[in-house]
């Protein structure tokens, strides 16, 4: 309920500025104008097409990142040799912004989905990897002892003890990876995608001074990100680690 107040106040302030006459209407369109554009692009299906293209790229990049980051992070946490080999590489590659790779990937793979997905993948892999790696090392040794004493070995020890024991870290990793992926995809689409995607729409609208299209696209980007964060990851967390008491809700 308090969130509604925040949104209403922020919207009212924006509307005041938009109607003040200090800026050109084409550059700072009013909320009704943005809403009309949003409605028009939703109704003709174009916004949906762009959103689907963006979500597809995030899903593909994030999926690859999760597979790679989880596998590598877990292996690094479990095996000293894997850690010793990959940690220096991770330390060097991690600080490189994913968008810095954009020209390289475009050169190698051309404009389009491959380059965009790779940029997303690059951005999302490291938070996943670091969290999985930390999570495995933070598993309560008592659980491993108890499980071992009860005959858990190999795959069973991994799936029935290490995976659930690591889940608070992995879910946080997933959240951070999604955030990074969502940020990266918009930038990547501006540079590496042609004709489709919410990032491309914003970039393209700049050419025609279509500030209403840009802001409508921003609203869609925000809404999708918010929906994933609150609905998908929040629900996942409530169904698992919060239910198990491994993490608690903050006190009111």
């Amino acid at each position: 309920m308090k969130a509604v107040v925040s949104f209403v106040v922020a919207a009212a302030l924006y509307e005041l500025v938009a109607r003040s006459g200090w800026f050109a209407q084409a550059l700072v369109p009013t909320l009704p104008a943005i809403a009309a554009t949003l409605w028009r692009t939703l109704a003709d299906g174009s916004m949906l097409n762009h959103a689907v293209a963006t979500v597809y790229r995030v899903a593909a990049g994030l999926g690859l990142a999760c597979a790679t980051g989880l596998a590598l992070g877990v292996l690094m946490g479990r095996f000293r040799a894997v850690e010793a080999f990959f940690l220096p590489l991770v330390n060097v590659l991690m600080p490189v912004p994913s968008l810095a790779w954009a020209p390289v990937f475009i050169l190698w793979f051309g404009l389009g989905n491959t380059a965009t997905i790779l940029i997303v993948f690059y951005a999302a892999t490291f938070p996943m990897l670091l969290n999985a790696w930390t999570g495995v090392r933070a598993v309560n040794p008592l659980w491993l002892r108890a499980a071992g004493a009860m005959g858990a070995r190999g795959a069973e020890l991994f799936w029935k003890v290490i995976v659930p024991a690591t889940s608070p870290f992995v879910i946080t990793g997933l959240r951070l990876a999604f955030q990074r992926a969502w940020i990266a995809v918009v930038g990547a689409e501006m540079l590496a995608a042609s004709d489709f995607g919410l990032g491309w729409v914003i970039f393209d609208a700049k050419e025609f001074l279509n500030a209403d299209v840009m802001l409508a696209s921003l609203a869609v980007i925000g809404a999708i990100g918010f929906a994933f964060e609150r609905l998908a990851f929040g629900a996942l967390e409530r169904a698992t680690v919060m239910r198990w008491g491994m993490v608690r809700a903050a006190k009111a």
Partner: peptide
């Protein structure tokens, strides 16, 4: 059986 309550699997 260990001393620590945390020996049970919370999940």
């Amino acid at each position: 059986v260990f001393q620590d309550f945390a020996q049970l699997f919370p999940w």
